[in-house]
């Protein structure tokens, strides 16, 4: 094993918690009878995410996601499900690019931005936002 500084910034991007969310996604799976659901893919890379949401009085009571793709897209979606659980639809509507990037806390290049934002875009479409 070489020292971490040999990894030239890539250890920044693929931090332990990113790899953890990639390999052990939170809220993984589907819901039996979701109130809202959407599946979409990024045609450029084939990353695919499905979001199922259970709503109660405008609050996200439960959420599940299923997907396949790169570590960034899958970890970002996993983190997002943790963020939005218990939040109102209006609060989700207010979430944007900066919130997702702050959540990830890693440097995302322009080429990978779409990967990071796929989860939020699918969730918003599911909620018709």
């Amino acid at each position: 094993m070489r020292p971490a500084d040999d990894l030239s910034g890539m250890d920044e991007l693929y931090r332990d918690f990113i790899l953890d969310h990639y390999r052990n996604p939170r809220n993984a799976g589907t819901l039996e009878a979701p109130d809202a659901s959407c599946e979409d893919l990024n045609p450029l890379c084939g990353d695919r995410i499905r979001m199922d949401v259970k709503l109660h009085d405008g609050i996200i009571e439960d959420i599940r996601f299923q997907g396949r793709g790169c570590a960034i897209s899958q970890a970002s979606a996993s983190l997002l499900t943790e963020t939005v659980k218990g939040k109102t639809v209006a609060e989700v509507a207010a979430l944007g690019k900066d919130d997702v990037l702050a959540n990830l806390g890693i440097p995302i290049s322009a080429a990978r931005l779409k990967c990071a934002l796929l989860g939020l875009s699918v969730l918003k479409r599911a909620l018709k936002l």
């Binding site: 030239s8 790169c70 570590a71 290049s109 080429a111 990978r112």
Partner: peptide, 23 residues
């Protein structure tokens, strides 16, 4: 392994190596 092609390509890019990742 379980490294997605885009992650692999991002890592190789930092080494100056251009490969294609995707379908």
């Amino acid at each position: 392994g379980d490294i997605h092609a885009h992650d692999l390509a991002s890592i190789l890019d930092r080494e100056g190596i251009c490969v294609r990742a995707g379908h």
